[in-house]
Design a protein around this nucleic acid. Structure first.
Length: 223
DNA sequence: AGCTGATCATCC
DNA sequence: GGATGATCAGCT
């Protein structure tokens, strides 16, 4: 019953195309997944269902979802207008030993090097069971997109390196922001403080803004 | 605690 | 209505 890992991009995309148009509930039933009534307590449910169905291998490992193909899977919740409803988490933000890090070898750049986007119509008034799966597509950053991401990454990593992590808010960044990524507001981690000492702060993550993923969709579907 | 998968809830 | 900050589950 569990799908094998795809051995080629072509095979992966055939699977992606075969689930386009199905609802999450239909797909879940086919693989004995129980569909939750809402995502209040299972926010990652859609991503985990799709990973399973497409034969992603990574699980909770820090490797690409399709390791041998070098492809990262991202489900993308969209509105009736085809616009992203949420930002897209990319990776955890390093807060320690950040001097000497470079965009070229950053985890963000590695993660975004080759992405399989899978839009899901996820308006809140549609129960998870009835949400339709869209047409997935492969994407790689254009030189312009890469430059935009690099600017945001460098600007915000600079603040972290200078011990100014607590000045970072979701308002920063043109296309990519840093926001909390934690179990709750009491889960703290170490970071560099204003005087170079170690301070406790919220774990953070890099997120793609909806305007950025919206442009990706626009270009793909000529919206 | 920290990574994976993300969306919720509240504020503007 | 959209974006920021907070939060949830599973695995290690």
């Amino acid at each position: 019953m569990r799908p094998d890992k795809p051995h080629s991009i072509e095979q992966l995309m055939r699977r992606v195309n075969s689930i386009a148009g199905m609802t999450l509930g239909q797909l879940a039933q086919q693989y004995q997944f129980k569909t939750p009534d809402d995502l209040l307590r299972e926010k990652g449910w859609i991503g985990q269902l799709i990973e399973y169905v497409l034969g992603a291998t990574a699980g909770s490992k820090p490797t690409p979802d399709f390791e041998e193909l070098g492809i990262e899977l991202k489900t993308l919740p969209i509105s009736y207008q085809g616009k992203p409803l949420e930002t897209t988490f990319v990776s955890v933000t390093p807060l320690l030993n950040v001097t000497g890090m470079h965009w070229q070898t950053s985890t963000v750049r590695k993660k975004l090097n080759h992405v399989l986007w899978l839009p899901i119509l996820s308006e809140r008034n549609i129960a998870p069971f009835d949400r339709p799966i869209g047409s997935g597509f492969l994407w790689q950053p254009s030189p312009r997109q890469d430059a935009q991401l690099q600017r945001d990454w460098e600007e915000q990593m600079e603040l972290i390196a200078l011990g100014r992590v607590d000045e970072i808010s979701g308002h920063l960044g043109d296309v990519m922001q840093i926001r909390p990524k934690a179990a709750n507001s009491k889960a703290l981690t170490d970071a560099i403080g204003p005087n170079g000492q170690i301070i406790k702060t919220l774990p953070r993550g890099f997120y793609l803004k909806t305007s950025f993923t919206g442009e990706i969709l626009k270009r793909q579907f000529q919206l």
